[in-house]
Amino acid sequence: MNQIRHNGKNIPLSAASLIVENRAFHFGDGFFESIRVVNGRIVFFQNHYQRILDTCKALRIDIPPELTPDSLEEEINLLVSTNEIAQGGRVRLTIFRKSTGYYLPQSNQMDYVIEAYPIEDNFFKLNEQGCTVDIYPDVRKDVNMFSMYKTLNCSLYIMASMYANERGIDDSLIQNNRGTIIEGTSTNLFLVSNGVLYTPSLDEGCIAGTMRMNIINIALENEIKVYECSLNPQNLLVADEIFLSNAIKGIEWISSYRTKRYFNDMSKELTRFLNKFVAETEG
């Protein structure tokens, strides 16, 4: 029977219940982390823990002193083992404010839930068939101090995903309130032109993805130039290649944007570098 962990205790998934006063349910007062499992162990945890610290600081949620990096990593891996995930898997860690009150919370204590599920692929695998994308036109993402964090307010991404589904494409690209293209519905965005990587800067309002950071670092280590900059629709039309990234899928290549078609040479190379790095340092 699949288990979850709530504040350090195992609970059967089928027996888990929601307290109606839960602030994540009432107000979306919290955030989440998606963490990849390879060979039955979570990877890139230090990157994720740093983002947890940064997000808790931004949202003013207090991390209990006993929840150290080592203890949280051990707890997540314990759940992975309990759920018999010996190869590839995905973990979702949801953190929210444990408090009563309305918009003004009565405390900043932290509550958390960990889920772990197996997935088909152990290491990162590039999609065989490229994805089709278009720009989501209805709502643009505001650029503010919360833009880079994975908060529980996901309405924009939900509506953009529905837009893509209704039009028979794989994903939507999100624009910020300045009109530049910043990300997919659950991914960061990269363009390739003349062997150089381009990706929106965090100042543009994209999520500060852990995989985004790892891809930038791995590219630089392999002497691939990377520029963080503003990207507009015209940049999509002249790019040689486009790919998306997140912590679970790794790299996902785009085959078409409207009438434009793309290659996937850099996507293949970076996926190979990524798996090599994981095998040598994390696996």
Rank of each mutant, 00 (worst) to 15 (best):
N176G: 08
T199N: 08
Y163P: 05
K260A: 15
M266S: 12
L231H: 00
R261S: 13
N188W: 01
L197C: 05
D138P: 00
L244M: 15
L236H: 11
I181K: 03
A160S: 11
I182E: 01
I251E: 12
Y262I: 12
R212W: 01
N235W: 12
F190Y: 09
D240Q: 08
S17E: 13
N188M: 07
V278I: 15
N122G: 09
V91C: 06
C56E: 08
D171I: 07
I63Y: 03
S155I: 04
T68S: 14
A86S: 11
L78K: 11
L18G: 01
Q87W: 00
L18V: 12
G168C: 09
L78R: 14
M211T: 15
M266W: 05
Y117W: 04
L220E: 14
R258D: 14
I135S: 06
R167W: 03
V143D: 02
A208N: 13
K225N: 05
R60I: 03
L156R: 00
I119V: 14
Y112I: 03
R5M: 14
F263N: 06
A16K: 07
D54F: 08
D121Q: 14
A160P: 02
K125M: 08
I114P: 04
M145G: 04
L126M: 14
Y112W: 15
A279V: 02
N83P: 07
D240P: 02
F277K: 13
R41S: 08
S14W: 05
E252Q: 13
N235F: 09
M148K: 15
P65I: 08
T199H: 09
N264P: 00
M1P: 02
E269A: 13
Y262A: 14
N165F: 01
S256N: 15
D29H: 08
E33A: 05
N222P: 05
Y157M: 12
A247Q: 00
Q87L: 09
L67N: 01
F27T: 10
Y103P: 02
M266R: 06
M145Q: 06
L53R: 13
N214R: 06
R178D: 15
V226C: 07
N77M: 06
L152I: 06
D170I: 04
R261P: 02
E73G: 06
G179V: 06
N10M: 01
E128R: 13
G168S: 10
T55V: 03
D142F: 02
V278P: 02
G179H: 11
V20K: 01
L237M: 14
D171N: 13
R140V: 04
L189M: 12
S71T: 11
E166G: 04
V192I: 12
N153T: 11
R97Y: 05
E73P: 05
T271A: 12
A279Q: 09
V91I: 08
E252K: 09
F32V: 02
S172V: 02
Y227S: 02
N153A: 06
N108T: 11
N83R: 02
V226H: 10
G250A: 10
I181E: 00
S14E: 09
Y198M: 14
